[in-house]
């Protein structure tokens, strides 16, 4: 009988029926969860308005530090990553090999381990060594090293995506290899890699939560550590929700920006 009904339906009717079934299932799941969950308890754990309010304005310092750590790591990542990318595409073998090793090492190590290495390993091996800017310097280098490996790979891909004809035109006008790179290839490559670099910024925003392992004070604390401290002192999960929302305040616009830049890149 089912077969008979189906055969009488037009393709459009069949699509509509299938859509309706999916909506019904989704609605059923939502209703089941809503009915089964202990809303009072959830609200008690996550939605204590007074606990959330008490986090302000101190949380802004942590929020600000998250931004600062992210940008420091990103700037270091660019400063180290762009030259590494150039070395990757160099005609001079040793440059290529060094850059390949660098990328493999720092892309292959967990950010946390690199941070430990920079924060504790290196100072132990070189006593008396002071990072400029204290914990800020440590973060720039510790997170920046990992980031520079990813940035280098993005930029390398961008350089290789610049059409060969652009290089030939520049060389035929008398530009040297280096001059061609600086004047023609890099500006175009950087335009190509803006969307992936924006994504890298999103990754770094989240990785800045690792900074707490370096031992931070109230003044240098970032969002995750701040939220965790509040969680401990209030024995309530509301600070995590507030912290999470503040992260999304940074990452969602960045992701949206990356998507828009990607789209603009397509139409070019």
């Amino acid at each position: 009988m089912a077969a008979a009904t189906e055969s009488r339906m037009t393709p459009r009717q069949r699509r509509r029926l299938s859509r309706a079934i999916q909506y019904a299932v989704a609605a059923a799941v939502v209703i089941a969860i809503a009915a089964l969950a202990d809303w009072g308890r959830i609200a008690d754990s996550f939605l204590q308005i007074d606990i959330a309010a008490a986090m302000f304005p101190a949380v802004w310092t942590a929020f600000w530090n998250t931004i600062v750590y992210t940008l420091l790591a990103f700037v270091f990542g660019m400063i180290a990553g762009v030259p590494i990318a150039l070395m990757r595409v160099s005609t001079f073998g040793p440059y290529r090999w060094f850059a390949a090793c660098y990328v493999e090492v720092f892309r292959g190590l967990p950010s946390l381990l690199v941070l430990f290495l920079v924060g504790f390993g290196v100072p132990q091996a070189f006593p008396g060594l002071q990072y400029p800017g204290g914990v800020y310097g440590q973060v720039a280098i510790g997170l920046g090293l990992t980031s520079s490996a990813y940035i280098a790979e993005s930029v390398r891909a961008g350089i290789q995506a610049v059409p060969k004809g652009q290089v030939e035109a520049a060389r035929s006008l008398g530009m040297s290899h280096t001059r061609t790179m600086i004047t023609v290839v890099l500006p175009q490559a950087l335009r190509i890699v803006i969307p992936p670099l924006t994504n890298e910024l999103v990754m770094l925003t989240k990785d800045s939560s690792l900074v707490f392992v370096l031992g931070v004070t109230t003044a240098t604390m970032e969002l995750s550590k701040f939220a965790r401290n509040e969680l401990t002192s209030t024995a309530n999960a509301t600070p995590l929700l507030v912290g999470g929302l503040l992260y999304l305040l940074l990452t969602v616009p960045l992701s949206a920006l990356a998507r828009r830049l990607e789209k603009r890149g397509d139409t070019r």
Partner: peptide, 18 residues
Amino acid sequence: DAARTDIGMVFQHFNLFS
């Protein structure tokens, strides 16, 4: 590089700097 400044070249696909 010096020699090429005295030799202009025009390509099939123009290759203007985009």
